[in-house]
Amino acid sequence: MAPIQHLTLDPSHPLPPTRNHPNNAISTSMPDAKETKVHPTISGAENASLYLVGTATIILSWAGIRLMTDPNFLHAVDHVHLGPGVTGTRVTNPAVDLNDLPHVDAVLLSHYHADHFDQKVEESLRRDLPIITTPHAKSHLANKAGENELFTAVYELDTFDSMFLEVQPTAGEASKDAGRLKAVKVIAMPGKHIPPGVLGTLNDLVGAVPPTNGWMLELGSHTGESDASFQCGYRIYISGDTLMVDELKEIPERYSGQNIDLMLVHLGGTTIPSPHMPLLMVTMDAKQGLELVRLIGPEMTIPIHFDDYDVFLSPLEDFKKVMAEAGLDKKVIYLDRGDDYKFSVKEI
């Protein structure tokens, strides 16, 4: 297990997410949500939010910082390369354009795939924006050819490795919190984009589909003197692009007795080379999504990554149906692009 890394984020000095941002004044506010959702039975003290941009791109806002997952800002009819001879066409538009984003403090990149880190994003993001990702993705981003092209703040996390994103407090906050730092603990979770067996072994050899992480995000605080002093006030599991594989069973084992407040599950039943020729499924369909809900047992689930590209075979309606049939329809929140979900992180 690698040593735990620490990265300090300073919300008092917002920087643009892109290196050629069109505005001199950087907004610190997200666009107004089309619709705001909250927990159906626990609400009234929300201090954090998730905003769905589209596909697997979520923006988490809490304690003055903003984290963005899997940035994909292509528009309808734009194409992405998904593997040898395989392309996908976007069929939706993102809720906000890349150049209209307010400041972003860090990016969580589950894997180096163009529908999660598209060519426009790769060209445009400022090079010192912190990116937390897989060792495979770091090998590409931190070694890009060309003057001023490589990303200079890429942090790699292998399965179950972790790091702290610590929030620099203002003077008043430091006094109020008696030395405790608000922090997000990021832990890399297992995931498999290709099913195990012959295909998985072959992919490991040729590298056609990149390795992927899920994430566990723990929002809380610690003294900064010891990692063991961290106390979690809210826990979010993000599945990443994975199938229902045995490695996922270790997650509830590791978190036995600890509440997982929210799960973001990547669905869609992504098929390659296309839904018209579904030779191989590489993300969960509705049935596997239900299996994951039962395995993880989150308080609430939000499905994402299900209709933005023409490679999806399993529509959201399939997931709604199986969740309702399982009696779990009260444990899921559905967001459209441009919607947000507000929730409460316990003050520790």
Rank of each mutant, 00 (worst) to 15 (best):
F312Y: 15
Y51E: 09
A2Q: 14
I236V: 15
F306A: 15
V322F: 02
D329G: 10
P210I: 09
A95M: 07
D339P: 02
D227Q: 10
V96A: 11
N213Y: 13
L52I: 07
P31E: 08
V311Q: 07
F343C: 06
H136R: 08
E123C: 06
A2E: 14
G268P: 04
G197Q: 07
P252R: 13
S162E: 15
K120I: 12
V121H: 03
S221G: 13
L129P: 05
D100F: 02
E325G: 03
G191P: 00
L108P: 06
E325Q: 15
S124D: 14
P11K: 01
S229N: 03
K138T: 12
M323Y: 05
F343D: 01
E46T: 08
V198Q: 09
A137W: 01
P84W: 07
E218T: 06
N143Q: 11
P22S: 10
Q168W: 00
S314P: 03
P135N: 09
Q288K: 13
D246N: 12
V38K: 11
L82K: 02
T36P: 00
F343Q: 05
A114L: 10
E149C: 09
A171I: 09
S12P: 03
E218V: 04
A33V: 04
L157P: 08
V53L: 07
D340A: 10
L262T: 10
H305Q: 08
T152N: 13
D70G: 06
P40H: 15
H79F: 06
V77H: 12
E147C: 04
P16I: 04
P195I: 07
D318P: 09
H140T: 09
R337W: 01
D308C: 13
M216E: 06
G233W: 02
A153L: 00
M1Q: 09
M1L: 03
